[in-house]
């Protein structure tokens, strides 16, 4: 799956011009938007609803909560959610912190202008460079014969594989995910850092605050909603991703998307409705994440007008 920033979506909504209210309309006006709504219904909403409804049914078509209960009862499924959440959490948190540090460095660090523009351009590309090729790139870097592994072994005498490192693990996957998580963070958080006005720092200084007090009482609280919102977005971003993980570790890594992939291919759970429940669980996690994202975003935009 490829991701791009959705940072400007809210802008689009906010700065939309006020349009005149349309009065009574003949139904013919609906013809203009009918194809879109029919398409969305058939290929986005109904297929999703089909799975959601299926998650609450048994083989006989009766409504039940058994499948949902099963999600928590089944050790392997529970583990897969746990691993997925762990990977998403750490890749989102680390990605957000590193991305924030880089964004602050390019916006506030007094670096030349080209540093900022080239970082922004590169981030736009890298946040879209996910999927199978990304897995290849990291295998060529940190795999057993990867460039960094080889250089560390031959030049510095550090054999990371002998020390227990393996790139084909959850932590390896986290390192790989950072390649699109960090740039996505930079793309989304940079406007928020731009919104920090220089006068705030000066006002704080004239009021007697030290730099640290200014950061603690103003900068961090102001950036906090944007930061938290973006962390959640990054979380959802990696929670639904499968291609990189699949190309990286095959089906050996027990994460939810890979489990669902195997279930779609061959009903490994021996219960189609449990498969629906698995999908429903993913929708719940990413859906909740997005609701929080929007909530935090609205908060920070109110401040940074």
């Amino acid at each position: 799956m490829t991701q791009a920033s959705i940072s400007t979506t809210a802008d689009a909504a906010r700065s939309a011009p006020p349009e005149a209210k349309s009065g009574f309309r003949l139904p013919t006006h609906w013809l203009g938007v009918a194809p879109f709504f029919i398409f969305a219904l058939m290929f986005l909403i109904l297929p999703t609803l089909y799975l959601v409804v299926g998650a609450f049914q048994n083989d006989q078509g009766q409504y039940t909560l058994d499948n949902i209960r099963q999600l928590f009862a089944d050790q392997s499924i529970r583990d897969s959610y746990w691993v997925s959440i762990k990977i998403s959490f750490w890749s989102a948190t680390i990605g957000a912190l590193v991305g924030l540090a880089m964004a602050i460095a390019i916006v506030r660090g007094g670096l030349p202008a080209w540093v900022r523009s080239s970082t922004m351009t590169f981030s736009g590309v890298a946040s879209n460079f996910a999927g199978v090729p990304l897995a290849f790139a990291f295998l060529a870097t940190l795999g057993r014969l990867g460039l960094v592994t080889v250089i560390l072994r031959d030049v510095f005498g550090i054999n990371i594989y002998a020390m227990g490192f393996n790139v084909l693990t959850s932590w390896g996957l986290i390192i790989v995910y950072l390649f699109f998580q960090i740039p996505l963070m930079i793309v989304i958080i940079t406007p928020a850092i731009d919104g920090l006005k220089r006068e705030w720092g000066e006002a704080a200084a004239t009021l007697g605050a030290t730099t640290w007090q200014y950061w603690r009482m103003v900068v961090i609280p102001v950036l906090w909603p944007s930061f938290l919102g973006t962390v959640i977005l990054l979380f959802a971003n990696s929670f639904g991703a499968i291609a990189t993980a699949y190309a990286f570790t095959g089906s050996s890594l027990n994460i939810v998307p890979i489990k669902l992939y195997a279930q779609i291919r061959g009903d490994v759970l021996h219960n189609p409705h449990l498969g629906y429940a698995l999908a429903f669980g993913m929708i719940v996690v990413t859906g909740l994440a997005n609701i929080f994202y929007i909530w935090f975003r609205t908060r920070s935009e109110r401040w940074l007008k």
Partner: peptide, 26 residues
């Protein structure tokens, strides 16, 4: 010293009272 800026420069995350109290708290 006290300073007032052209663009107000109030801290957006603080209430009016917290803004006024900023220097006192510091």
């Amino acid at each position: 010293i006290g300073m007032v800026f052209q663009a107000y420069a109030l801290f957006p995350n603080l209430t009016v009272a917290q803004n006024i109290g900023f220097g006192l708290k510091v």
